[in-house]
Design a protein around this nucleic acid. Structure first.
Lengths: 162, 162
DNA sequence: GGCCCAGGTTGCTTGAAGCAACTCATGTCG
DNA sequence: CGACATGAGTTGCTTCAAGCAACCTGGGCC
């Protein structure tokens, strides 16, 4: 991704993609949304190169999508949290998730389910609770492992060195 | 983007991004949605390298997101159309557009407006018509130039060689 | 003293994206 | 008739981002 921008494009989709269209960025946001907040945790979970993760986190912090907060001192250790701007990416992630579920289905069903925290109802591709009928936001929903998620054992054999 | 995949990720967001997370892919889909269907038209509009556009179009056709159809013979000339799978990306594009509008606003307002074809009502970040209250799909909506779009003249001076 | 952990940084290699030039079949201008 | 234009690419070369492995720092564990 040269220069990570789209010169000459005057469009909010292009502007959004300049920030979160880089490889790995949205997956990092997804993981932080699912309470993966630490460097090593993200690195191992994603299988991303450490230098690239470092660069992405820095960019996401610069863009005010993530916030870096120390959780202990000496040695200093940090966690990453989503800002409001980062949380606002939730509808886009939900739309992509639904598209992936629909058009590249996993055998055994979706590997991740999104449910409304209050009522447990499932969330559709617009981020609307099917039970309540209301538009949800990031904090209203939770991700759960779905039926298509490989179990610990089979995941280990499927990706042995990871 | 090495190998254009995310090995070890069992998640529909990751699977979606393997296909449409490559640089330029979503912008190509956006343009085809807005009736830009031909190679040169896309190339000039996006300012993308011709070999890269060629590769992206091929990939999008392979993934059944676009369809390549001849519109004349001798010499053979082609147009690209969205398949149902491609049209289903509309909610994701709308979500990204809304996020870009909200968090990286253009001076003068949004450069692109999405309206419900039937009633002219504006469409929110969930792809719902604010007037009718119903969930829309790609074919129900139309993109219009917004107040933040630079005029022909200023666009030409802003990007002289493009 | 040797090892582990967390959170990175450095250096090198590979491969994707940018750029310019070329092709090929037709159509059009003067 | 030759010159140029159009559309849809392809080829070759260069540059920059991503992958990979090794290293660093500051502390704790035994």
């Amino acid at each position: 991704m040269l220069h990570h921008d789209y010169p000459g494009q005057v469009c909010s989709i292009a502007k959004a993609l300049e920030v979160i269209g880089e490889r790995w960025s949205l997956l990092i946001v997804r993981d932080v949304m699912n309470r993966r907040r630490r460097f090593d945790e993200l690195q191992k979970g994603l299988g991303i190169a450490r230098n690239v993760l470092s660069a992405r986190l820095q960019r996401l912090v610069d863009e005010d999508i993530l916030e870096r907060r120390p959780y202990q001192e000496s040695p200093e250790r940090y966690e990453y949290f989503l800002t409001e701007k980062g949380l606002d990416l939730w509808p886009a992630l939900i739309a992509l998730l639904a598209w992936g579920d629909r058009h590249s289905p996993s055998p055994g069903g979706p590997p991740m389910l999104i449910v409304h925290k209050k009522c447990g109802g499932s969330v559709n591709d617009r981020g609307i609770c099917e039970a309540c009928g209301i538009e949800l936001h990031a904090r209203d929903a939770r991700a759960l492992p779905g039926p298509g998620l490989p179990s610990e054992g089979s995941a280990a054999t499927a990706t042995p060195a990871r």
